[in-house]
Simulated scan of single mutants.
Amino acid sequence: MARGEQIYTLREFLNIDGVYEHHGIDYGDGTVIHYRKGTETIERTSKAYFTDGRKVYVKRYPLRYIADTVIQRAESRLGEKKYNILFNNCEHFATWCITGVSYSQQVKNFIPLLDNINVEQISEPIKEAILGVKTQVDTNELVSQALADIKVAWENIQPEYKQTLEEIDNWQKVAVASLKKNREDLARAALIRKRKHQEYADELAASLQKLATMTETLLRSQNLIGKN
């Protein structure tokens, strides 16, 4: 283990040990930056507090930021209180520090449904439910709840989309700087990372567009906006 590494321990849940992983960034001096349990705040604590006596593992990546950059990214979010088990957990944070992508393999593994959500498939059942309710009050409540759910999804996706666009720009700058130093190998690696971010940005943009379409569908169903 070294400064700027993504480390994790296996934690217990409902008295069953090893159910989930708790991730953080090793500061290299006996401290770790991570989402602290209880406060749900990104803090720098002792490694002893982070491990709680458990074995420590290191997550490796074939392409990642250098240690100093990882530490800078981790420090930039100290004090953050935006923990969300599905969209912004400890693994999302640590992976973002290392690679620039907010990602949690645990969420992908334990909640595979998230990978299969199709916003277009959600809008029709909502529309049918609206048409099936008996009173305007019921309809308004259903629409309000649906719009609230869409708002939550949008607020989770949109910042990540913006962040991904920034990463695309950053990797482009790295590629240009590498070429100026005649380091074509580093430039190629940077462009590969840029392409991966671009692919992810395209996916997020598509999701945002679907959410916007859902919103319009809901509003039109209520005659809150004009017809085409």
Rank of each mutant, 00 (worst) to 15 (best):
G24T: 11
I25C: 07
I25K: 11
Y27A: 11
Y27I: 06
G30A: 02
V32M: 05
I33L: 12
I33T: 14
K37A: 08
K37M: 08
K37S: 08
K37W: 06
K37N: 08
T41H: 12
E43T: 14
R44F: 02
T45C: 07
T45A: 11
T45Q: 06
K47S: 05
A48K: 15
A48H: 11
F50C: 01
T51H: 02
T51K: 06
T51Q: 06
D52C: 04
G53V: 04
G53K: 01
G53I: 06
R54F: 00
R60A: 10
R60H: 12
Y61H: 13
L63T: 12
R64M: 10
R64P: 03
Y65I: 05
Y65F: 12
I66F: 06
I66N: 07
D68A: 09
D68Q: 08
D68F: 03
D68G: 03
I71H: 02
I71R: 03
R73E: 08
E75W: 03
E75V: 08
S76E: 05
R77G: 07
L78K: 06
G79W: 10
E80K: 10
E80Y: 10
N84I: 06
N84L: 05
N84C: 07
I85K: 07
L86N: 05
L86E: 06
L86T: 06
F87G: 03
N89P: 03
H92T: 02
H92E: 00
H92L: 02
F93G: 04
F93C: 05
W96K: 09
C97Q: 04
I98W: 00
G100R: 04
S102H: 07
Y103R: 09
S104Q: 02
S104M: 01
Q105F: 03
Q105L: 08
Q106H: 04
N109G: 01
P112I: 00
P112A: 03
P112V: 01
L113P: 00
D115F: 08
I117R: 05
I117K: 04
N118E: 11
N118T: 09
V119C: 13
V119E: 15
Q121D: 15
S123C: 06
S123K: 13
S123H: 07
K127P: 03
E128R: 14
I130C: 06
I130N: 04
L131P: 00
G132D: 12
V133W: 00
V133Y: 01
V133R: 01
K134N: 12
K134C: 07
Q136M: 14
Q136V: 14
V137K: 15
V137M: 13
E141P: 01
V143E: 13
S144L: 09
S144I: 08
S144W: 09
S144E: 11
A146W: 11
A146M: 11
L147V: 10
L147S: 09
D149M: 11
V152N: 11
A153H: 13
A153F: 14
A153P: 10
W154T: 15
N156H: 15
